[in-house]
Simulated assay, not measured.
Amino acid sequence: MNARTEPAETEPDSIARPSLVREFLLVAGLFLVYKFGRQLATGHTGEAFHNAHRVWDLERTLRLPDEGAVQSALLHGDALVRLANTYYATVHFPATLAFLAWLYLRRPAHYLWARRVLAAVTTAALVLPFTFPLAPPRMLAATGLVDTARVYGPSVYGPPSSDHLSNQFAAMPSLHFGWALMVAVGLIAATRSRARWLWLLHPLITLLVIVGTANHFWLDAIVAAAMLGLALAVIRRPHRPRRCTGTAGRGTRRFVPKEQVLVGAGR
């Protein structure tokens, strides 16, 4: 008797895996652009604080939830707020790198798509601080929010005047949230597991963390999601992997393209 096996997943198209060296340089370049590109938009401190007041007032006009409610939940215990600060400081880059590495090894077609989307969103996000510099809510006294990283630790930022590794007045859009949302979207698109929707917990937790630690306004995340949505609409997504069907010999299964199944059914 033929051994019964679970159907496996296979890429929809025969996509050659791109050169590892070339992709390493491209992805490294993407991260360097993200890390240092915002330095080109440093300065404009007064305008950044003015825009922060405008964003805060607009959120109240739109009746968005108060960021303080999320922070109050975090401040119920020192361990929880430190965990949120650690998540903000340590998960962002490693999670995105792991996502790209897994796609590169297991889903080359989806890897190329995800890399292009991330590159497009990151490039667009670097342009916005030139036209709309924005101070984070932790710097705005009117919000009444605590700079949790400075008070409880760990912190990834120094005083804005001496922090030469990041532009703290480029809060909009939140690439923390934009990249986290793309990780979830990419893994949902590239897999077939019924549990794949749980990947949405990553952007959800990221959203609560960036707001609760007073590093971003709600609108920073909303703008990032809109930019990602536009990139996803423009950049064509590959088909989700299909499960193998049919048999080829004893104990083995082979992939039958959908077109062949339809042709065979019409005979």
Rank of each mutant, 00 (worst) to 15 (best):
A95V: 10
P137A: 02
V33P: 03
L64N: 10
R116A: 13
P137V: 00
A69M: 15
L103C: 09
P133I: 03
V55Y: 00
L145P: 00
N51I: 03
V156H: 04
F132Y: 11
A41S: 13
R38M: 07
S162N: 13
V127D: 08
F132D: 06
P160Y: 11
Y88C: 06
G37C: 03
R138P: 02
D78E: 15
L140V: 15
A79F: 11
L32T: 14
A124C: 14
R116K: 14
S162M: 12
A95M: 10
A142V: 12
P154I: 05
A89Y: 06
T143S: 04
R60I: 07
R138A: 06
A114C: 07
G153A: 12
T143K: 02
N51K: 06
G46W: 09
R116V: 09
Y104F: 14
R107V: 04
F132A: 08
L140I: 14
A149C: 09
R107C: 04
Y111H: 10
Y111W: 13
M139W: 04
W56V: 07
T148H: 03
P160K: 09
A69E: 14
A95W: 05
A89H: 07
T90M: 12
A84Q: 03
F93H: 09
A84V: 03
L145T: 01
A114L: 05
M139I: 05
R38T: 04
V33A: 12
T42S: 12
R60H: 12
A109V: 08
T61Y: 08
R115V: 06
L118N: 03
L62R: 13
Y111C: 06
S161N: 15
P154N: 07
L74R: 04
D78T: 15
P65S: 13
L80T: 03
Q39C: 15
L134S: 06
P160V: 12
A114R: 01
L75C: 10
A114D: 00
V151K: 10
A84G: 06
